[in-house]
Write a protein that binds this DNA or RNA. Structure first.
Length: 470
RNA sequence: UCCCCGAUAGCUCAAUGGUAGAGCGAGCGGCUGUUAACCGCUAGGUUGUAGGUUCGAGUCCUACUCGGGGAGCCA
């Protein structure tokens, strides 16, 4: 008898004979001499109801003891359901127990409402719940959608290194990678730790961004992207930060900031549309139980062009806002969370692309704008942040400085060491081209698409300060 | 890392400084083509950890750990 995934069985014609395998969500008994088993195998949001009659040989001995979490195989025939709530169900000719639950009283994913905080401590079992199963499928759909989006547009997927010996990234605190004996490391004659004796012969860390590496491939393959794990050792304790997260970083050659912002906008819209189509079941759940209005909000985002505005103009809007902010707004200072939220949630009520930030608050590799761009009082760089309601910054990107002399000046101004960037500078010496790229936080994208409030609930096993269980 | 709040049964929460309770879940029984079912019974506790104040601490004080909200850093 064919083993069907529940997602397929739900679509199969009445009369189909098949086997289903999965985990019991609930069991309900009827005195009419039958039991109803909600079976879920994770292939779709909806499970399938298995009807087990009392004339099955193991009805008393096993079926009546099945509870939440038990693994079973059921074979039988798909029939039209006599009850409400489902169109088809499996009339079981046999139910085999595969794995029982030791102690139903302490089974952490019991059939009751649990808080996300509690389930986070049961990360190995939480995916058996409606919410986390849906998050897992949405996460997958978005990941696949990202690769498809880029593939359809002739981007190449580049595997940038996880371990970086360059200490030149400057995007945040880094995790050290070392094989030295922590208690008794090799030392130089001066008494310093001797990284010459370390595995790589120098200091090494986990990557905080694949950008610098992917720029090299961009300047040969034209359109590339990375999509991999990223590590920040910041002591950040918020609902939108992780120590280990996944980031998508496209990089496009012969392109400027406008091309970059357009790419990001096209990509986000493609992904939202793709998700609403491919995971309609899970999205309906998020729309109903997690964030009412979610689907309309995503459709609204798909339909309207993102609002693009210069930093200088954003500051003006904030200064003229009737709202009183905890932190004052001044040209030259970075936008605070409350400012970003005001722009995207209250003033424009849609995704906002802020471009051309003051150079002094941005990274060295961002392209210097001509003086007076947007009427700015000081120098700006071709940077852009995409702000979305509820999340804040979801994308950060820029056009890269392709002029060697300007780049060198910026490196110097920021007190960095030119030689550390020798290969990055080489790109500007040998056939340099205007190019641009951005970083999209994958978990923040999932948060935005699902309405899940805490970033630790959209990654299977979250890593955060003092949290690396599982 | 900073500010605020919290930690009591498997889970969610009550309990004036004076005998630790309820709902849900779980087990058993009743009822029912059931589906967030419903009714009854039963079990279930070193009140986060370590100190302190007090005749007496779940309750007050201190430290620590963990969680939540906000901030910073950012994606």
């Amino acid at each position: 008898m064919d083993w069907l995934k529940i997602k397929d069985a739900a679509q199969a014609p009445v009369g189909t004979r098949c086997t289903l395998k999965g985990w019991v969500r609930t069991r309900r008994d009827s005195k009419a001499g039958l039991s109803f088993i909600d079976l879920n195998d994770g292939t779709a949001f909806q499970g399938l109801q298995v009807v087990a009659k009392s004339d099955l040989p193991n009805y008393e001995s096993e079926i009546l003891h099945l509870g939440t979490g038990c693994a079973i195989e059921a074979e039988g025939e798909l029939v039209e359901s006599k009850g409400k709530g489902q169109s088809v169900e499996l009339q079981a000719s046999a139910v085999r127990v595969v794995g029982l639950v030791d102690d139903p009283d302490t089974y952490p994913a019991s059939a009751k409402r649990h808080t996300f905080e509690y389930l986070r401590e049961q990360a190995h079992l939480r995916v058996r719940t409606n919410t986390f199963g849906a998050v897992a499928r949405v996460r997958h759909a978005l990941a696949v959608g990202i690769h498809r989006f880029f593939d359809e547009r002739d981007f190449f997927y580049v595997h940038t290194p996880i371990i970086t010996a360059s200490d030149a990234e400057g995007a945040g605190e880094m995790f050290r990678v070392s094989t030295l004996d922590m208690h008794n490391p090799a030392r130089t004659p001066e008494g310093e730790v001797d990284y010459n004796k370390d595995f790589f012969g120098r200091e090494a860390n986990l990557t905080v961004s694949g950008q610098l590496n992917v720029e090299t491939y961009c300047c040969a393959l034209s359109r590339v992207y990375t999509f991999g794990p990223t590590f920040r050792a910041e002591n950040s304790n918020t609902s939108r930060h992780l120590a280990e997260f996944w980031m998508i970083e496209p990089e496009i050659a012969f392109a400027d900031l406008n091309d970059d912002a357009q790419l990001a906008e096209d990509m986000l819209k493609y992904l939202f549309d793709d998700l609403l189509t491919r995971r309609a079941d899970d999205m309906a759940f998020f729309n109903e139980r997690i964030e009412p209005g979610l689907i309309d909000r995503l459709k609204h985002v798909i339909e309207k062009p993102f609002r693009r505005l210069p930093y200088t103009e954003a500051v003006e809007i904030l200064k003229n806002a009737k709202k009183s902010f905890e932190f004052p707004v001044e040209w030259g200072s970075d936008l605070q969370s409350e400012h970003e939220r005001y722009l995207t949630e209250e003033h424009f009520k849609q995704p906002v692309v802020v471009i051309n930030y003051p150079k002094k608050i941005k990274a060295f590799y961002m392209r210097l704008n001509d003086a007076g761009t947007d009427g700015a009082p000081e120098e700006t760089v071709a940077a852009m942040d995409i702000l979305v309601p509820g999340i804040g910054e979801i994308v950060g990107g820029s056009q890269r400085e392709e002029r060697l002399d300007v780049l060198d000046r910026r490196i110097e101004e920021m007190g960095l060491i030119k030689d550390d960037y020798w290969w990055y500078r080489d790109l500007r010496r040998y056939g340099t081209v205007p190019h641009a790229g951005f970083g999209l936080g994958f978990e923040r994208l999932i948060q935005f698409c699902t309405g899940m409030q805490n970033i630790r609930d959209v990654i299977p096993f979250p890593r955060a300060p003092r949290q690396a269980d599982f």
